[in-house]
Design a protein around this nucleic acid. Structure first.
Length: 275
DNA sequence: CACCCCACCTGCGTGC
DNA sequence: TGCACGCAGGTGGGGT
């Protein structure tokens, strides 16, 4: 569920409420996540430390703690980070709960348990970040650079967009929306993109990601921000999840196909394969 | 190395 | 009402 915009929305919510606060306790459940530091490590590197800042890398969220330790969180498909008063009774599927000053609690809730919670001692570099690609919103990413990266590749555009080793943070929903906005076919071999295609692709990528952040993310079924609120970008979706519904651009029905094992929604009329 | 497929999980909607 | 099946925003490991 959570792609770059959702993680960024969560990050901003957490900054507002948790920056400068100190962890006072951590409670770890019995079921483990896809990757998870031990209870002891979580306790050692969080309890007693203040949250100095929060950053995001792709779909990963980083809590930068006093003394240099890092708490790294990935939400997988159904993960949530929810802030509540510490007195609130625990909800189902909460696997880790951090207590903070001011009687606050931060809950990691994840039905499918594809999420990750990892801590790193000061000076350690989180290894999940090592292979991550560029931030699509970074100024250093230019149409020319994107064009260079596509040269010699034979895979389809869709696979390229969701490959986190190239651009970090774009998942299935936003890949569909970006390709629709850029009027590019999901099956187009990415090596065939022209420089102007790449310029349009990057422009639409940024516009859509920024718009989704402004709208508080996309809630299809599970996503909630740190206050438990849904995201409104679902109302702006032009292609994703709209199989059979009219394309907002041309009125032709949105089609669906499977790429890299997941559904792609697109308009066969607006997103034609061109030479 | 680049791809594809599946595994990892739970829940929900659909069709029989 | 019940059950089987397919599908869901994620990554990563193993095989070809």
């Amino acid at each position: 569920m959570p792609e770059l915009p959702e993680v960024e929305v969560i990050r901003r919510g957490l900054v507002r409420e948790l920056a400068g606060k100190r962890f006072t306790a951590v409670k770890v459940g019995t079921l483990s996540l896809r990757r998870q530091s031990t209870r002891e490590d979580l306790k050692t590197w969080t309890v007693g430390r203040r949250i100095q800042s929060l950053s995001r890398r792709g779909k990963y969220l980083l809590f930068h703690l006093e003394g240099g330790a890092i708490l790294l969180v990935h939400l997988g498909m159904t993960g949530r980070l929810l802030i509540s008063p510490a007195s609130r009774k625990p909800q189902a599927h909460v696997h880790v709960t951090f207590r903070l000053e001011n009687r606050l609690a931060l809950h990691f809730q994840d039905v499918r348990r594809f999420g990750q919670i990892l801590v790193y001692a000061p000076g350690q570099t989180p290894e999940p970040l090592a292979l991550l690609g560029m931030e699509p919103l970074a100024r250093s990413v230019t149409p020319r650079l994107l064009h260079t990266l596509t040269r010699g590749k034979r895979g389809p555009l869709k696979n390229f967009l969701i490959d986190g080793r190239v651009l970090a943070g774009i998942g299935n929903i936003y890949a569909c929306e970006i390709m629709h906005a850029a009027r590019l076919s999901p099956v187009m071999p990415v090596g065939c993109l022209s420089p102007s295609d790449c310029e349009r692709l990057l422009r639409e990528t940024r516009r859509i990601l920024r718009q989704a952040i402004r709208r508080g993310g996309t809630t299809v079924s599970d996503f909630l921000n740190s206050r438990g609120e849904t995201g409104l970008f679902r109302l702006d979706l032009q292609a994703y999840g709209r199989e059979g519904a009219p394309c907002p651009g041309c009125g032709q029905p949105i089609a669906r196909l499977t790429q890299a094992g997941r559904s792609t929604f697109f308009c066969p009329s607006c997103q034609r394969l061109r030479g």
